[in-house]
Computed example of a mutant assay.
Amino acid sequence: MSLQYKKFLLFGDSITEFSFNSGMVEDVESFSFGSALTNVYTRKMDIMQRGFSGYNSRWALKILPKILETEANSNIAMGFIFFGANDSCLGGHQRVPLEEFVENITKLVQMMKSSGIKTILIGPGLYDKEKWESIKPDDIAEGRVRSQEEFKKYSDAGEAIAKAENVPFVNLNKAFREQGGDKWQDLMMDGIHFSGKGSLIFYNELLKTIRENYPEYAPENIEYKLPNWSDVKPDGSNIN
């Protein structure tokens, strides 16, 4: 059996960059979706994290070609694209107007598809204005203001892109509303980034999307590399 692993590319902004950082989660359920993905795909697929805090879709267009070029022979089988929380700022240099956001995300999806990558598009979740603005006064003073309404617009745009490009879409905006209920604020650690509870919802929605659209890459359908230790012969002769 070959020990070359196919890769799952996680490409996005700070939510992706912090996907392994359970230390930033304040609640007792310090669940991180990056760690959970690594665990569920262990000895099956490599999780390749390429998250860039504060970045938007405009800047992502500069990065993805470099990632794909660098990893040209690395067998990236599946990948997600997760931007929008920064693009949807109402001011500041992170803002990307909705029309341009649609163009940028469409190009990113097409880049992945042209590289033979099973692509998943993810839209922004929810935004807790009160919590974020209480701990980020400098952002607000400099015009980096966000809103639930803008998050919803950019999520809806992402869903439309996914439909047009025939790729699956993870609708976190909807999932957080439905599963968070009256306590949806508990899903965000600081108003934008996910708490353990929010990260768990994302993880479950992502795996559900993979199982429904790319079942060959569902963790339970990928061959576990090498025999379990209990099945290894004393001389190791059955380790192929």
Rank of each mutant, 00 (worst) to 15 (best):
Q148P: 14
D138Y: 05
R146A: 08
D27C: 14
Y55H: 13
Y214M: 06
L10N: 03
I135S: 09
S88P: 09
I201N: 02
D235V: 10
N238Q: 00
N240I: 15
S147H: 01
S32T: 11
E103G: 05
K136G: 04
E212W: 08
S230Q: 10
M78E: 02
V170N: 04
E159K: 15
L98N: 02
P124S: 02
K66A: 15
G54I: 04
M78A: 06
R95W: 08
V28W: 12
Y224T: 12
A60M: 05
Y214N: 08
E17V: 12
E142D: 12
D182H: 10
P227L: 09
I239E: 00
K197Y: 13
T106V: 02
T42E: 14
E29Q: 14
V109N: 00
P215R: 01
S30F: 03
I222Y: 03
D139P: 09
A141R: 08
D186K: 15
S32M: 06
V167A: 03
I120A: 06
R177K: 13
L126K: 07
A160C: 06
Y41Q: 11
T16M: 08
F202N: 04
I192L: 14
Y127K: 04
G180W: 01
G34C: 07
L64K: 03
I117Q: 05
S155N: 14
S57Q: 00
N204D: 15
E149S: 13
G125R: 00
I76N: 01
T42L: 10
G125S: 06
S32K: 02
A36N: 07
A157N: 09
T38E: 09
W132I: 12
W132A: 10
P215C: 01
I76C: 06
L90S: 11
N56V: 09
K107Q: 11
M45Y: 08
W184A: 14
P97C: 02
H193T: 07
E17R: 13
R58Q: 10
P234C: 00
Y127M: 08
E69S: 13
S155T: 12
T209Y: 07
F31K: 03
F101M: 04
K225N: 05
L3P: 08
N39S: 15
K131W: 08
W184G: 05
R58Y: 11
K118V: 11
F151A: 05
